[in-house]
């Protein structure tokens, strides 16, 4: 692929200490993800999928190895630089939504813009537009506890796209939903992704959902065991 990769990983490992012994979660990952790709990361529980996603997002640092986002080395960046980078370049959708319970739907969607200092009417308009896109125009003032799981995940989707990030990371984003709601969310995710032109990395157990991706990476015991690219039909 001729374009510069959005994400590039070289020999990435990650170990943690459980208190009694050391666990190697990732044991040497080499990977490149290019702009516009829709990548599904699959693997059994404990294979290291979520840890990998966390490293890609700069939520955590690798024990060894290097990770580059848009050509910039992020594996040794400080916490604040990483936060700033995430705010600018990465959108997240989590399995358990991770909305802030004390904020309304609209406030949750606005949050990334506010943290970046964008507090004008323009940001509020975009937040409402995104909530309308996900079908929650009449739930703006609702708190997360007043929304169903599917609705909460839609708010999380709208929030992920708020700052038009070039990279979108989704961690089992339909895992907590029934199949109908799950499918709706994924359709929305894919639609918004193509509308906003971002690169999408989706961690999932679900083969059917993974089938929608253009590339499927499979992990086992902290290693990439397969990396399949779909040829365009």
């Amino acid at each position: 692929m001729p374009s510069q990769p959005v994400l590039s990983l070289q020999s990435v490992t990650k170990s943690i200490d459980t208190g009694t012994h050391r666990v190697d979660i990732l044991r040497g990952i080499d990977l490149e993800i290019h702009p516009g790709e829709f990548v599904a990361v699959m693997g059994a529980s404990g294979s290291g999928k979520s840890t990998l996603l966390g490293l890609l997002a700069g939520l955590d640092s690798p024990t060894t190895g290097s990770i580059q986002l848009d050509g910039d080395e992020i594996s040794r960046l400080g916490e604040d630089a990483l936060s700033e980078l995430r705010g600018r370049k990465i959108g997240f959708v989590f399995q358990s939504y991770q909305l802030i319970p004390t904020l309304t739907a609209e406030e949750n969607v606005l949050l990334p813009a506010e943290l970046a200092g964008e507090t004008g009417e323009q940001a509020a308009t975009r937040a409402r537009m995104l909530l309308t896109t996900v079908g929650l125009q009449d739930r703006l003032d609702h708190y997360p506890v007043q929304l169903s799981g599917g609705e909460q995940q839609r708010v999380a989707l709208a929030r992920a796209f708020m700052r038009k990030p070039p990279l979108l990371l989704a961690d089992e984003s339909t895992g907590n939903l029934d199949s109908i709601n799950g499918r709706q969310i994924l359709d929305l995710l894919v639609a918004l992704n193509s509308q906003e032109g971002a690169t999408l990395v989706l961690v999932t157990h679900d083969r059917d959902l993974a089938a929608l991706a253009t590339r499927i990476i499979t992990l086992r015991d902290g290693l990439v065991v397969s990396d399949e690219r779909k040829t365009p039909e």
Binding site: F92, Q98, L111, A116
Partner: peptide, 16 residues
Amino acid sequence: LDTIAILKCLGARSAQ
């Protein structure tokens, strides 16, 4: 702690 982690995920610096 979760809220703080989410805020950091969404781009908030520790100081913020």
